[in-house]
Design a protein around this nucleic acid. Structure first.
Length: 251
DNA sequence: CTCCAGGGGCGTA
DNA sequence: TACGCCCATGGA
């Protein structure tokens, strides 16, 4: 059992996190979070996933005190962390996310896992891992269309086969700096600037990546008509972007 | 440059 | 209940 500071106080919330073939149940009571796993599993796997080593308080303290809006966002979202999620999962998930809303993205990913992912057991509970590139590469566009993926189906088939046959090298990608990683991702079929930035931020932990969707565009227009002061936050603006996103969503 | 491509969630009436 | 509107990317 481990504890973390939380972004927001809630009572009796329970969460299920599935990443690669691992699953973690977490509950939150007030600002106390409990993780139901062994200390070994937490240290070996989830500590990295939750980016435990990064000092987010230091980041929050670095915010320009004159920027009341950003200070308010950071205070509201102070428990938000940039996860270190699986690269292939993020590539496919963010391709699905384009032109799509969160409930539907969740449904698509769940169907994808239940249909093509490895069946796993945790005690009496059953869950499904995210499908491998090798597995997805065997599918046809029609297979994915039937899961409701729409016009993104053809992107996923192509990207999965490029990854499976190593014409797109994930290992090399994971070693690149932000600019090179972004350029490499943009070469993938169905990946544009916004999706590439999301993958950089949420899988590769390039926290300078600052994905701009229409939601963030509105936030920036409303609060930074002269443009966001990237120069003050060199190398980690993506974390602040997440604070603004959270604040806009949850207040 | 503009338009269109699934589809469903969501705001509005 | 029913109606538009929205959305990221590639291709025409």
């Amino acid at each position: 059992m481990n504890e973390l500071g939380s972004a927001k106080t809630k009572v009796g919330q329970s969460y299920e996190i599935i990443a690669r073939d691992k699953r973690l149940v977490a509950t939150q009571n007030g600002d106390k979070i409990s993780f139901y796993c062994s200390k070994e599993e937490f240290d070996n796997h989830w500590a990295n996933y939750f980016d435990i080593k990064t000092d987010y308080e230091k980041i929050i303290n670095s915010i320009d005190k004159k920027d009341k809006y950003l200070c308010r966002c950071a205070r509201s979202a102070s428990g938000v962390r940039i996860l270190r999620q699986d690269l292939f999962e993020m590539i496919i998930t963010f391709i699905i996310s384009q032109q799509n809303n969160i409930p539907r993205i969740k449904k698509c990913v769940e169907r994808l896992c239940e249909t093509y992912g490895k069946k796993c057991k945790d005690g009496d509970d059953v869950y499904y891992a995210f499908p491998t590139a090798k597995k997805l590469a065997t599918l046809s566009e029609e297979d994915l269309l039937s899961l409701g993926l729409g016009y993104r189906a053809k992107y996923i088939v192509k990207v999965a086969s490029d990854v499976a046959n190593k014409s797109f090298d994930l290992k090399a990608l994971s070693k690149m700096d932000y600019e090179n990683a972004k350029r490499a991702l943009l070469s993938l079929y169905g990946v544009g600037v916004k999706v590439a930035n999301c993958i950089c931020l949420f899988a590769l932990h390039h926290v300078e990546a600052f994905p701009i969707d229409t939601h963030i565009k509105q936030i920036l227009n409303a609060n930074y008509p002269g443009g966001f002061p990237f120069e003050k936050y060199d190398g980690y603006a993506g974390i602040l972007q997440q604070y603004m996103f959270y604040y806009d969503l949850h207040g």
